[in-house]
């Protein structure tokens, strides 16, 4: 019984983390928090400080920081390895034009996942 959550150090990511921890509690499941780090730069704002993240996630749960240029693929990989029963991700609200331009990690996870996906919305930042 494993839940996989995609985390980024943003308000939306925090909402995902909160929701994922609540789900893990509810289902008595182990949580694997995935924070995909984009390699190549000296500093990546999407990478969370590992020790701090682990402390917040708590004992019994796991933090992984795969190095990948494709966050959707990295998240799906972990979900498959862990035979996850649920994936928790965040989705941003966007205009149709924004969607067209930005392409969506969330959309790929939704379409390609083998298990149910819980999409958390960022209600504070419309």
């Amino acid at each position: 019984m494993t839940i996989v959550a995609g985390y980024v150090p943003t308000p939306l990511g925090e909402a995902v983390l909160g929701q994922a921890l609540a789900e893990a509690e509810l289902r008595k499941a182990r949580l694997v928090v995935v924070n995909v780090s984009h390699p190549g730069a000296y500093v990546d704002p999407g990478t969370a400080p590992p020790a701090e993240l682990q402390r917040r996630v708590g004992d019994g749960h796991e933090v992984r920081q795969p190095q990948d240029t494709d966050p959707a693929a990295a998240l799906l990989d972990v979900a498959r390895q862990e035979s996850a029963e649920l994936i928790v991700i965040g989705v941003r609200r966007r205009s149709p034009v924004g969607k067209l331009l930005m392409g969506s990690t969330a959309q790929r996870v939704l379409l390609e996942s083998d298990c149910p996906v819980l999409a958390v919305k960022d209600n504070d930042h419309r």
């Binding site: 984009h38 390699p39 190549g40 730069a41 500093v43 990546d44 990478t47 969370a48 190095q67």
Partner: peptide, 9 residues
């Protein structure tokens, strides 16, 4: 090119 990145401090 694929050096791991550090978190923004």
């Amino acid at each position: 090119l694929r050096r791991p990145a550090a978190p923004a401090a």
